[in-house]
Design a protein around this nucleic acid. Structure first.
Lengths: 130, 130
DNA sequence: GCCGTTACTTTCAATTTGAAAGTTACCTGT
DNA sequence: ACAGGTAACTTTCAAATTGAAAGTAACGGC
Protein backbone atom coordinates (compact mmCIF):
# COMPACT_ATOMS: atom_id res chain seq x y z
CA UNK A 1 0.00 0.00 0.00
CA UNK A 2 2.89 2.43 -0.50
CA UNK A 3 4.13 4.40 -3.52
CA UNK A 4 2.42 5.26 -6.76
CA UNK A 5 0.07 2.44 -7.66
CA UNK A 6 -1.92 4.05 -10.42
CA UNK A 7 -0.66 3.69 -13.99
CA UNK A 8 0.32 7.31 -14.57
CA UNK A 9 3.64 8.88 -15.39
CA UNK A 10 4.90 12.16 -13.90
CA UNK A 11 4.45 14.02 -17.17
CA UNK A 12 0.70 13.35 -17.08
CA UNK A 13 0.51 15.75 -14.16
CA UNK A 14 0.62 19.52 -13.95
CA UNK A 15 3.03 19.53 -11.04
CA UNK A 16 4.61 17.41 -8.37
CA UNK A 17 2.14 18.62 -5.74
CA UNK A 18 -0.02 15.77 -4.44
CA UNK A 19 -3.01 18.07 -4.18
CA UNK A 20 -2.67 19.21 -7.80
CA UNK A 21 -2.22 15.58 -8.89
CA UNK A 22 -5.30 14.39 -7.06
CA UNK A 23 -7.24 17.29 -8.59
CA UNK A 24 -5.95 16.26 -12.03
CA UNK A 25 -7.81 13.00 -11.47
CA UNK A 26 -10.76 13.95 -9.30
CA UNK A 27 -10.99 17.72 -9.77
CA UNK A 28 -14.36 17.90 -11.46
CA UNK A 29 -18.01 17.96 -10.49
CA UNK A 30 -18.86 14.33 -11.31
CA UNK A 31 -16.10 11.79 -10.78
CA UNK A 32 -16.41 11.61 -7.00
CA UNK A 33 -20.20 11.34 -7.20
CA UNK A 34 -19.73 8.10 -9.17
CA UNK A 35 -17.38 6.84 -6.46
CA UNK A 36 -19.96 7.86 -3.83
CA UNK A 37 -22.69 5.86 -5.55
CA UNK A 38 -20.51 2.81 -6.12
CA UNK A 39 -19.19 2.86 -2.56
CA UNK A 40 -22.21 3.78 -0.48
CA UNK A 41 -25.38 3.52 -2.51
CA UNK A 42 -25.07 0.08 -4.11
CA UNK A 43 -25.41 1.48 -7.61
CA UNK A 44 -23.29 -0.63 -9.91
CA UNK A 45 -24.84 -0.44 -13.38
CA UNK A 46 -24.75 2.38 -15.90
CA UNK A 47 -28.49 2.83 -15.52
CA UNK A 48 -28.45 2.94 -11.73
CA UNK A 49 -25.59 5.44 -11.69
CA UNK A 50 -27.36 7.64 -14.21
CA UNK A 51 -30.50 7.70 -12.10
CA UNK A 52 -28.79 9.39 -9.15
CA UNK A 53 -30.19 12.59 -7.73
CA UNK A 54 -27.82 14.74 -9.79
CA UNK A 55 -28.84 13.17 -13.14
CA UNK A 56 -25.42 13.02 -14.71
CA UNK A 57 -25.64 13.23 -18.52
CA UNK A 58 -25.03 9.83 -20.09
CA UNK A 59 -22.03 10.93 -22.13
CA UNK A 60 -20.32 12.36 -19.07
CA UNK A 61 -21.06 9.19 -17.12
CA UNK A 62 -19.74 7.10 -19.99
CA UNK A 63 -16.48 9.05 -20.28
CA UNK A 64 -15.92 9.28 -16.52
CA UNK A 65 -16.43 5.52 -16.08
CA UNK A 66 -13.95 4.89 -18.89
CA UNK A 67 -11.43 7.16 -17.20
CA UNK A 68 -11.93 5.57 -13.80
CA UNK A 69 -11.36 2.15 -15.35
CA UNK A 70 -8.22 3.36 -17.16
CA UNK A 71 -6.95 4.77 -13.88
CA UNK A 72 -7.56 1.47 -12.13
CA UNK A 73 -10.01 2.95 -9.64
CA UNK A 74 -12.96 1.00 -11.03
CA UNK A 75 -13.18 -2.33 -12.81
CA UNK A 76 -16.05 -3.57 -14.96
CA UNK A 77 -17.26 -7.13 -14.83
CA UNK A 78 -19.67 -8.64 -17.34
CA UNK A 79 -22.79 -10.02 -15.71
CA UNK A 80 -24.62 -10.91 -18.89
CA UNK A 81 -23.59 -12.14 -22.36
CA UNK A 82 -25.09 -11.15 -25.69
CA UNK A 83 -25.37 -8.30 -25.25
CA UNK A 84 -22.56 -7.88 -22.78
CA UNK A 85 -23.73 -5.89 -19.76
CA UNK A 86 -21.29 -4.65 -17.21
CA UNK A 87 -21.33 -4.14 -13.51
CA UNK A 88 -18.96 -1.46 -12.20
CA UNK A 89 -16.97 -2.24 -9.07
CA UNK A 90 -14.45 -0.16 -7.14
CA UNK A 91 -10.92 -1.52 -6.88
CA UNK A 92 -9.00 -1.20 -3.63
CA UNK A 93 -7.50 2.05 -4.95
CA UNK A 94 -11.01 3.27 -5.66
CA UNK A 95 -12.25 2.31 -2.22
CA UNK A 96 -9.32 4.21 -0.71
CA UNK A 97 -11.08 7.43 -1.78
CA UNK A 98 -13.60 6.96 1.04
CA UNK A 99 -11.84 9.31 3.51
CA UNK A 100 -11.91 11.99 0.83
CA UNK A 101 -15.66 11.52 0.37
CA UNK A 102 -16.16 11.71 4.12
CA UNK A 103 -14.14 14.93 4.36
CA UNK A 104 -16.03 16.51 1.47
CA UNK A 105 -19.32 15.44 3.02
CA UNK A 106 -18.49 16.80 6.45
CA UNK A 107 -17.45 20.16 5.05
CA UNK A 108 -20.61 20.47 2.93
CA UNK A 109 -22.74 19.38 5.85
CA UNK A 110 -21.32 22.04 8.15
CA UNK A 111 -20.94 24.93 5.70
CA UNK A 112 -23.55 24.34 3.00
CA UNK A 113 -26.35 22.65 4.89
CA UNK A 114 -26.21 19.53 2.76
CA UNK A 115 -27.37 16.08 3.77
CA UNK A 116 -25.09 13.53 5.29
CA UNK A 117 -24.65 9.79 4.77
CA UNK A 118 -23.33 7.52 7.47
CA UNK A 119 -21.21 4.83 5.79
CA UNK A 120 -21.21 2.79 8.98
CA UNK A 121 -24.98 2.73 9.37
CA UNK A 122 -25.51 2.71 5.61
CA UNK A 123 -28.09 5.46 5.73
CA UNK A 124 -28.54 9.20 5.53
CA UNK A 125 -28.98 11.68 8.34
CA UNK A 126 -29.92 15.37 8.23
CA UNK A 127 -31.88 16.68 5.24
CA UNK A 128 -31.68 13.44 3.38
CA UNK A 129 -29.97 13.37 0.08
CA UNK A 130 -26.32 12.37 0.59
CA UNK B 1 -19.55 26.75 13.90
CA UNK B 2 -22.77 24.90 13.05
CA UNK B 3 -25.24 25.17 10.18
CA UNK B 4 -24.88 26.69 6.75
CA UNK B 5 -22.65 29.73 7.07
CA UNK B 6 -21.99 30.49 3.44
CA UNK B 7 -24.33 32.86 1.61
CA UNK B 8 -25.91 30.32 -0.74
CA UNK B 9 -29.48 29.23 -1.13
CA UNK B 10 -30.57 25.62 -1.71
CA UNK B 11 -31.50 26.30 -5.32
CA UNK B 12 -27.90 27.19 -6.13
CA UNK B 13 -27.03 23.55 -5.67
CA UNK B 14 -27.55 20.50 -7.86
CA UNK B 15 -28.79 18.37 -5.00
CA UNK B 16 -29.06 18.10 -1.26
CA UNK B 17 -26.02 15.84 -1.04
CA UNK B 18 -23.20 17.48 0.92
CA UNK B 19 -20.62 15.95 -1.38
CA UNK B 20 -22.32 17.31 -4.49
CA UNK B 21 -22.67 20.72 -2.83
CA UNK B 22 -19.02 20.86 -1.87
CA UNK B 23 -18.11 19.86 -5.43
CA UNK B 24 -20.38 22.64 -6.73
CA UNK B 25 -18.03 25.02 -4.94
CA UNK B 26 -14.65 23.31 -5.04
CA UNK B 27 -15.09 20.76 -7.81
CA UNK B 28 -12.56 22.09 -10.27
CA UNK B 29 -8.84 21.91 -10.88
CA UNK B 30 -7.86 25.32 -9.48
CA UNK B 31 -9.93 26.59 -6.54
CA UNK B 32 -8.31 24.40 -3.91
CA UNK B 33 -4.83 25.21 -5.19
CA UNK B 34 -5.52 28.86 -4.37
CA UNK B 35 -6.60 27.83 -0.88
CA UNK B 36 -3.44 25.72 -0.57
CA UNK B 37 -1.22 28.69 -1.47
CA UNK B 38 -3.06 31.10 0.82
CA UNK B 39 -3.06 28.67 3.71
CA UNK B 40 0.35 27.04 3.53
CA UNK B 41 2.64 28.91 1.20
CA UNK B 42 2.24 32.49 2.33
CA UNK B 43 1.15 33.68 -1.08
CA UNK B 44 -1.33 36.48 -0.63
CA UNK B 45 -1.09 38.72 -3.70
CA UNK B 46 -2.41 38.14 -7.20
CA UNK B 47 1.14 38.01 -8.50
CA UNK B 48 2.39 35.54 -5.90
CA UNK B 49 -0.60 33.24 -6.47
CA UNK B 50 -0.09 33.37 -10.22
CA UNK B 51 3.56 32.37 -9.89
CA UNK B 52 2.76 29.01 -8.29
CA UNK B 53 4.14 25.83 -9.81
CA UNK B 54 0.94 25.20 -11.77
CA UNK B 55 0.92 28.63 -13.45
CA UNK B 56 -2.77 29.29 -13.28
CA UNK B 57 -3.92 31.57 -16.14
CA UNK B 58 -4.56 35.07 -14.87
CA UNK B 59 -8.18 35.15 -15.97
CA UNK B 60 -8.94 31.91 -14.14
CA UNK B 61 -7.16 33.20 -11.05
CA UNK B 62 -9.10 36.44 -11.27
CA UNK B 63 -12.50 34.72 -11.57
CA UNK B 64 -11.74 32.11 -8.90
CA UNK B 65 -10.65 34.77 -6.43
CA UNK B 66 -13.83 36.71 -7.12
CA UNK B 67 -15.89 33.58 -6.52
CA UNK B 68 -14.04 32.73 -3.30
CA UNK B 69 -14.67 36.25 -2.04
CA UNK B 70 -18.36 36.05 -2.98
CA UNK B 71 -18.60 32.75 -1.14
CA UNK B 72 -17.00 34.26 1.94
CA UNK B 73 -14.04 31.88 1.89
CA UNK B 74 -11.54 34.64 1.13
CA UNK B 75 -11.51 38.35 1.90
CA UNK B 76 -9.42 41.00 0.19
CA UNK B 77 -7.77 43.81 2.08
CA UNK B 78 -6.22 46.84 0.41
CA UNK B 79 -2.57 47.33 1.31
CA UNK B 80 -1.86 50.21 -1.02
CA UNK B 81 -3.84 53.21 -2.30
CA UNK B 82 -3.72 54.73 -5.77
CA UNK B 83 -3.65 52.29 -7.33
CA UNK B 84 -5.49 50.03 -4.90
CA UNK B 85 -3.61 46.78 -4.40
CA UNK B 86 -5.18 43.91 -2.55
CA UNK B 87 -3.93 41.19 -0.27
CA UNK B 88 -6.04 38.02 -0.22
CA UNK B 89 -6.70 36.39 3.14
CA UNK B 90 -8.65 33.26 4.05
CA UNK B 91 -11.68 33.70 6.31
CA UNK B 92 -12.38 31.16 9.03
CA UNK B 93 -14.64 29.31 6.60
CA UNK B 94 -11.79 29.25 4.11
CA UNK B 95 -9.33 27.99 6.69
CA UNK B 96 -11.77 25.21 7.55
CA UNK B 97 -10.92 23.64 4.19
CA UNK B 98 -7.55 22.54 5.58
CA UNK B 99 -8.63 18.96 6.42
CA UNK B 100 -9.84 18.60 2.85
CA UNK B 101 -6.45 19.73 1.53
CA UNK B 102 -4.71 17.28 3.85
CA UNK B 103 -6.93 14.41 2.70
CA UNK B 104 -6.37 15.25 -0.97
CA UNK B 105 -2.64 15.51 -0.35
CA UNK B 106 -2.39 12.22 1.46
CA UNK B 107 -4.27 10.38 -1.26
CA UNK B 108 -2.10 11.85 -4.01
CA UNK B 109 1.03 11.15 -2.03
CA UNK B 110 0.16 7.47 -1.62
CA UNK B 111 -1.41 6.76 -5.01
CA UNK B 112 0.16 9.24 -7.41
CA UNK B 113 3.65 9.72 -6.02
CA UNK B 114 3.16 13.43 -5.48
CA UNK B 115 5.03 15.57 -3.02
CA UNK B 116 3.74 16.29 0.43
CA UNK B 117 3.64 19.43 2.58
CA UNK B 118 3.65 19.31 6.35
CA UNK B 119 1.43 22.16 7.60
CA UNK B 120 2.79 21.72 11.12
CA UNK B 121 6.45 22.01 10.13
CA UNK B 122 5.64 24.45 7.33
CA UNK B 123 7.74 22.59 4.79
CA UNK B 124 7.61 19.89 2.15
CA UNK B 125 8.65 16.28 2.42
CA UNK B 126 9.02 13.64 -0.32
CA UNK B 127 9.62 14.82 -3.88
CA UNK B 128 9.17 18.45 -3.03
CA UNK B 129 6.43 20.31 -4.74
CA UNK B 130 3.36 20.32 -2.52
C1' DG C 1 7.63 62.37 -19.53
C1' DC C 2 9.18 57.70 -20.80
C1' DC C 3 10.03 52.85 -19.09
C1' DG C 4 9.00 49.05 -16.35
C1' DT C 5 6.03 46.71 -13.02
C1' DT C 6 1.76 45.26 -10.80
C1' DA C 7 -2.74 43.83 -11.14
C1' DC C 8 -5.95 42.95 -13.63
C1' DT C 9 -9.49 42.68 -17.81
C1' DT C 10 -10.64 41.61 -22.41
C1' DT C 11 -10.57 38.90 -26.49
C1' DC C 12 -11.03 34.80 -28.87
C1' DA C 13 -10.01 30.09 -30.41
C1' DA C 14 -10.09 25.55 -28.54
C1' DT C 15 -11.89 22.45 -25.36
C1' DT C 16 -15.48 20.66 -22.45
C1' DT C 17 -20.17 20.13 -21.10
C1' DG C 18 -24.68 18.35 -21.32
C1' DA C 19 -29.40 17.66 -23.71
C1' DA C 20 -31.26 15.02 -27.10
C1' DA C 21 -31.36 11.84 -30.64
C1' DG C 22 -29.34 7.67 -32.64
C1' DT C 23 -27.46 2.86 -32.34
C1' DT C 24 -27.03 -1.96 -31.14
C1' DA C 25 -28.54 -5.98 -29.13
C1' DC C 26 -31.17 -8.48 -26.37
C1' DC C 27 -35.86 -9.87 -24.24
C1' DT C 28 -41.02 -10.54 -24.23
C1' DG C 29 -45.20 -11.44 -26.17
C1' DT C 30 -47.99 -13.31 -30.17
C1' DA D 1 -40.61 -14.60 -36.85
C1' DC D 2 -41.77 -10.14 -36.26
C1' DA D 3 -43.18 -5.90 -33.45
C1' DG D 4 -42.45 -3.40 -29.29
C1' DG D 5 -39.77 -2.42 -25.31
C1' DT D 6 -35.56 -1.81 -22.60
C1' DA D 7 -30.56 -1.41 -21.42
C1' DA D 8 -26.33 0.50 -22.36
C1' DC D 9 -24.17 3.23 -24.65
C1' DT D 10 -22.45 6.57 -28.65
C1' DT D 11 -22.99 10.47 -31.51
C1' DT D 12 -24.23 15.09 -32.50
C1' DC D 13 -24.19 19.80 -31.67
C1' DA D 14 -25.12 24.19 -29.33
C1' DA D 15 -23.75 26.47 -25.25
C1' DA D 16 -20.56 27.25 -21.59
C1' DT D 17 -15.92 27.16 -19.95
C1' DT D 18 -11.03 27.35 -20.37
C1' DG D 19 -6.67 29.39 -21.07
C1' DA D 20 -3.07 31.93 -24.04
C1' DA D 21 -2.18 36.31 -25.35
C1' DA D 22 -2.89 40.98 -25.84
C1' DG D 23 -4.76 45.15 -23.80
C1' DT D 24 -5.53 48.56 -19.94
C1' DA D 25 -4.78 51.48 -15.89
C1' DA D 26 -2.09 53.28 -12.19
C1' DC D 27 1.55 53.96 -10.20
C1' DG D 28 7.04 54.42 -9.07
C1' DG D 29 11.79 55.39 -10.68
C1' DC D 30 14.96 57.91 -13.50
Amino acid sequence: MAGADLPRTPKDFRSRCSIARTLDIAGDKWTLLIVRDLLWHGKDTFQALQHSEERMPTNILSSRLKRLVELGLVKKEPYHDRPVRYRYVLTDAGKSLEPLLVTLMNWGNIHLGGGCFDPGAGKSVTAGGS
